[in-house]
């Protein structure tokens, strides 16, 4: 079991579900946390994922799923409060600190998270990781963006297209 512990003295009162990563690792997690995923929510509402069954997630490997669940567990209490309108400023600041820390990760992990958040439809996580990439490339030139994101250098043909465009919109590249 690679499931992060989230007992918090609930003495098993919270319902648990099991998620199975593409490399067959089983994660046991509170239903409330897993339900941040729109994709999983219906299955869980229908009683799926309990007992020995588990919900297979063939598109998500265990390293990524562990990271995704770390996010879900942290955000589940606030989400349960309906976006936490009555959350204290301290709670919000703590979530913000967690989020900033959370995306301070290797680029390849970040990309895996983007795909997982998208496939599992976890809105807050989708927004968080997309914003991280947007912040990495904002204010950069096309070449700098390509290098930042690990794209190969442009072919001569692509370079010619870029030059023509830059001639037309030269002001945007000063």
């Amino acid at each position: 079991m690679a499931a992060p512990e989230s007992g918090d003295g609930n003495n098993g009162a919270a319902r648990m579900v099991t998620l199975i990563s593409s490399d067959n690792t089983r994660f046991e997690v509170e239903a409330a946390a897993a339900s941040l995923s729109q994709t999983l929510q219906l299955t869980i509402l229908d009683g799926g994922g309990g007992g020995g069954d588990g919900i297979p997630l063939p598109n998500v490997d265990s390293a990524t799923l562990s990271k995704v669940l770390e996010y879900c567990i942290k955000h589940a209490p606030a989400a349960a409060n309906g976006g936490a309108p009555n959350a204290t400023a301290v709670d919000r600041a703590e979530l913000e600190r967690f989020d900033n820390e959370f995306v301070n990760i290797d680029q390849s992990v970040l990309y895996s998270l983007i795909m997982a958040a998208h496939n599992l439809e976890i809105e807050g996580l989708q927004s968080l990781v997309a914003k991280k990439v947007a912040d990495m490339i904002k204010g950069k030139s096309p070449m700098e963006i390509r290098r930042t994101l690990g794209f190969p250098d442009p072919t001569p043909e692509e370079q010619a297209e870029m030059n023509a465009h830059m001639l037309e919109y030269g002001w945007a590249y000063e």
Binding site: A130, P142, Y173
Partner: peptide, 22 residues
């Protein structure tokens, strides 16, 4: 997924012109 990223870029006039060349 790309549109989720690009839609979060700042609304400066050069932003999308630059992104369009990537």
């Amino acid at each position: 997924t790309l549109s989720e990223i690009l839609v979060r870029l700042p609304p400066a006039p050069s932003t999308l012109l630059r992104a369009s060349l990537v």
